[in-house]
Simulated assay, not measured.
Amino acid sequence: MLVTMFLLGLVYVAFVTAFYVIAPGWGLFALVIAVLFLFAQYFFSDRITLFAMHGREVSPEEMPQLHGVVDRICAMSDAPKPKVAVADTDVPNAFATGRNQRKSVVCVTTGLLRRLDPVELEGVLAHEMAHIAHRDVAVMTIASFLGVCAGLITRFGLEAGLWGGFGRRNDQNTGLVLLAVVAVSAIAYAISFLLTRALSRYRELSADRAAALLTGRPSALAGALTKISGEMARIPTKDLRAAEPFNAFFFAPALTKGFSISSLFSTHPSLERRLAQLQDISGQLSRGV
């Protein structure tokens, strides 16, 4: 994770330096918009995600078993209790969001509650609450800043070119600057996209490890992963497509059947890698390591 963040920093420095040389005033507008987007994501991610997933906060009286699992994890980890929510969808999944432990929410779907037993549910919720403890929402928001900014500048540059910037005979410098802006921004976006996805996969493995060590039952988490991944194949494609934009938040990615870009640039490690890590942790715990 440190290496990935270091590489993201290098890309950021190269990106800013290139813009300073090519067009120092071009990126200001896109930078302001990117900051506003990331500000909203950082401070209102819990509300935005819950609203988009049609999740609602539930009380201990409504969902005593679910609250009981969350309370047990909080007691084991000595962490403040997040808000607890449920999303009414058959896609079996869970997610956590919020910029810190006191401004966070953990949400499970009704499909997940129907399919997992209490021990497996505890493993999934421990994984999600590890994301909260690690401040993963804040980390990924900061890490994605360069990609958002570069993507906006690429779009603005292309739109300016389509409006005539690339074809002005009386001002060839303008066209060259626009081409350079689009090229630099596109390259920075592509590299930051790949690095951010890699960072996301590392943080998923970290959350798996934290949950397995906290609960002391890596096999339960492995069982939940296997069960959820298997059940995804039975979910209607339209439901999976509706859930795919939130894969970065989910416990397991909602992937449509067949080949997709999501399988190439996934926010999550492969099921095999996650299970292998959990098996290794199980061996360590059995040996008392």
Rank of each mutant, 00 (worst) to 15 (best):
F37V: 11
L285R: 11
L275V: 08
P60Y: 05
D117E: 12
S59A: 07
P236G: 00
L213Y: 14
F15C: 09
A186E: 11
D280K: 05
V105F: 09
A224E: 15
W26H: 06
S266C: 06
I153M: 15
Q65L: 05
R273T: 09
G283D: 14
K83C: 04
L38T: 07
R72T: 07
G68E: 04
G167N: 14
S59V: 09
M1E: 13
R114K: 03
C74S: 07
R287I: 00
I187D: 02
D88R: 13
A210M: 13
T97Q: 07
R47Y: 01
R72L: 03
S77D: 15
V16C: 05
T110K: 06
I33A: 14
A220W: 04
G98V: 07
Q172V: 14
N170P: 02
T174P: 00
L158T: 13
A87R: 10
A52Q: 14
P92Y: 12
A79E: 12
W163N: 06
F259C: 08
L271F: 08
A252R: 15
I33R: 03
S262Y: 03
G283Y: 04
V86W: 10
R274K: 03
L10W: 07
V106C: 00
F95N: 07
G175S: 14
V182C: 15
E204I: 04
A79Y: 04
T4H: 00
L50I: 00
G27D: 01
R72D: 11
T141V: 15
P24T: 11
D46K: 08
A186F: 12
L194V: 12
T256M: 12
V58N: 07
V58L: 02
T141W: 13
G123E: 10
G288P: 06
V139Q: 11
T215W: 10
A143L: 08
V69Q: 03
A186D: 07
L195P: 02
G165H: 02
F37P: 03
G68M: 01
F265L: 11
A23E: 15
M1H: 09
G258L: 01
F51L: 11
G223L: 12
Y20A: 08
A207P: 14
A94S: 10
